[in-house]
């Protein structure tokens, strides 16, 4: 329970960002062809093109977050600072 509370407190932002990206990805996949044609775009002629584009434009942000927030190997054995650590 403390672990869940810790994640919600300190990492809710990236969870919601990933949820947002997933919603965009699914909406792209489910987009009807006749509605995609409303865009009149030569780059995006099918819904999955937008899903693919989201992999390059939106997904790198949470991936960068995860990469930046990873704990260096040397510190993994150390105790995290008080504010970072779930209560025992």
């Amino acid at each position: 329970m403390d672990r869940v509370k810790y994640i919600l407190k300190y990492h809710l932002h990236v969870i919601l960002y990933l949820y947002f990206w997933f919603g965009l990805f699914v909406c792209g996949l489910a987009a009807p062809r006749h509605r995609v044609e409303e865009l009149g775009s030569s780059l995006v002629s099918q819904g999955w093109h937008l899903s693919l584009l989201s992999l390059f434009l939106v997904l790198p942000v949470p991936l960068a977050y995860l990469w930046r927030m990873r704990r260096p190997r040397a510190r993994r054995g150390e105790k995290a600072p008080l504010a970072d650590r779930p209560a025992a």
Binding site: W21, L24, C27, G28, L39, S41, V44, L50, L53, L57
Partner: peptide
């Protein structure tokens, strides 16, 4: 820039889904 990256996908979807 991070917000723009979201909007580049969101706005075409908004037109598609009305």
């Amino acid at each position: 820039v991070f917000a723009l990256a979201v909007d580049i996908i969101l706005d075409p979807l908004a037109t598609i889904y009305n």
